Amino acid sequence: MDVIRVTDRLDPHEVLEGYRKGVFPMGYLDAPVISWHLPEHRGILPIGQFHTSRSLAHTLKRARFTVTFDTAFEQVMRACAARGEGRPKDTWITERIIAVYADLHRKGHAHSVEVWVDGKLAGGTYGIHLGSAFFAESKFHTVRDMSKVALACLVQHLQAKGFTLLDVQYWTEHLSQFGVIEVSRNQYYGQLREALRLNCQF
């Protein structure tokens, strides 16, 4: 179990302090509490080693979409929380989470990538930025492959800006197709410390 503590509060300062220590929060729809997580093994996507499948490369080349940054942050968060038909009961992106991360966005600590198709939000991702680290939280799509496009564009953007760490929290088989690997907690701490020493602009 990677839960290290449970609180009944959530504020922007505490969230940022958590990320600096490798800890991130999750909410619950059925309980007014916040759990704080520190995985024993961490999923990271080495910047510069993003794997683009043939189908994704074809989608990117066709470019039948428009990509923006930080133009619809809360809309992206709400879309991530409402994946599928209706809001899943086990989503951790609660109203409290949305309110705090939206505040962090206004203060320049949280960012989003939006993918638009025919003028409608079709995919996106969002996360927290500290130093040269980006902590990706979630992604979504309503049009096929647009969450993949969002991730690909995020990686390209981070690489161009000199970021050194892209944290995706957990390794999954789905994320492994993009080049996500799993590292130990100690390895992660080493990379996190180095990333926090640099100051990149998103």
Results as ranks from 00 to 15, higher is better:
170 Y>D: 13
100 V>R: 07
134 F>R: 12
178 F>I: 08
85 E>I: 07
45 L>R: 14
145 D>S: 15
12 P>T: 03
73 F>D: 09
114 E>Y: 10
131 G>S: 08
50 F>I: 03
15 V>F: 02
104 L>R: 12
108 G>A: 01
197 R>I: 01
155 V>Y: 03
143 V>K: 01
185 R>G: 09
159 Q>W: 10
15 V>K: 08
139 K>Y: 10
39 P>C: 10
11 D>N: 14
185 R>D: 09
13 H>S: 14
30 D>I: 00
64 R>I: 08
86 G>H: 08
16 L>G: 09
32 P>T: 02
175 L>H: 05
201 Q>D: 15
93 I>M: 12
15 V>P: 02
80 C>H: 07
173 E>P: 00
12 P>A: 10
149 V>H: 03
131 G>E: 04
57 A>D: 06
28 Y>H: 14
122 A>L: 09
132 S>W: 00
133 A>C: 11
126 Y>P: 01
45 L>T: 08
92 W>G: 13
23 V>P: 08
50 F>R: 04
5 R>H: 06
68 T>D: 01
181 I>F: 10
157 H>F: 01
63 A>M: 06
20 R>K: 15
59 T>S: 12
43 G>C: 09
176 S>F: 04
142 T>K: 12
176 S>M: 07
37 H>I: 03
5 R>V: 00
172 T>D: 10
98 I>Y: 00
114 E>H: 13
93 I>K: 09
18 G>V: 00
114 E>K: 14
45 L>S: 13
84 G>K: 03
160 A>Q: 09
4 I>G: 03
82 A>V: 01
49 Q>E: 15
2 D>E: 15
137 E>C: 00
116 W>Y: 01
131 G>H: 06
172 T>H: 09
52 T>I: 15
41 H>I: 00
4 I>Y: 05
79 A>Q: 14
108 G>H: 02
92 W>S: 13
135 F>G: 00
